[in-house]
């Protein structure tokens, strides 16, 4: 968990450095919005200070996780873990526990589940595409942002209940969620989904 956090902060700092003078073009705000549930309108011009503050908040979080390596934190996280079932490309199921607040991409990687993550959660690729196998669970997720939809456009084997794994964040209501990793050779029957007529 800490490793992936380091990677995440690293990536955000790199991006922050690259885009500190840009206005609305970078995905920084949106990643954070997913994780911390900030609402940010489209094309909002992030000022430099805003970006900077954002990076600092994340940095602070990272440091505080590093220093509180005692058991209380771990225990509370365990208590707040949800069950998630991944269905891999060969149709095999794997049940894992995912702490609340963690993305499904991170969770998959921590549990050796083969889910690609080319851009490491920065909403710049579609490789962590997962299919939510139950419409009710899918409806509990916040709507994808335009940025996520832009990437889902390019996802292989897109369905009506597709999401990017990096944007599905564990929360208590999602306990028991089932996520399929699409494969070229399989069709999915999603529970409760009625195909729209063309």
């Amino acid at each position: 968990m800490q490793n992936s956090k380091v990677a995440r902060v690293g990536a955000s700092i790199v991006k922050h450095l690259c885009t500190r003078n840009c206005t609305s073009l970078c995905g920084v705000g949106y990643i954070r919005s997913a994780r911390y549930h900030y609402k940010q309108p489209l094309f909002q011009h992030h000022s430099f200070t805003k970006l900077y503050k954002g990076a600092m908040i994340e940095k602070h979080n990272f440091l505080s996780t590093m220093t509180t390596n005692n058991t209380t934190k771990e225990r509370s996280e365990q208590e707040q873990a949800i069950s998630v079932t991944f269905i891999d490309k060969d149709g095999e199921e794997k049940l894992i526990k995912v702490p609340v607040g963690m993305s499904m991409l991170e969770a998959a990687h921590e549990n050796d589940i083969e889910l690609e993550g080319a851009c490491e959660g920065s909403i710049a690729c579609s490789t962590c595409h997962v299919i939510v196998m139950d419409v009710e669970q899918y409806n509990k997720l916040e709507d994808p942002t335009d940025e996520e939809n832009d990437m889902l456009d390019l996802a292989f084997g897109l369905t009506e209940t597709s999401r990017l794994g990096c944007q599905v964040i564990a929360k208590p209501e999602l306990d028991g969620i089932r996520l399929a990793i699409p494969a070229a050779t399989r069709n999915f029957a999603v529970d409760g989904y009625v195909p729209k007529p063309h």
């Binding site: 995905g27 851009c119 490491e120 920065s122 710049a124 690729c125």
Partner: peptide, 12 residues
């Protein structure tokens, strides 16, 4: 050059 996120795949 202004798409650094896309280049993160270099890590992999």
């Amino acid at each position: 050059p202004d798409h650094p996120e896309t280049k993160i795949v270099i890590n992999q």
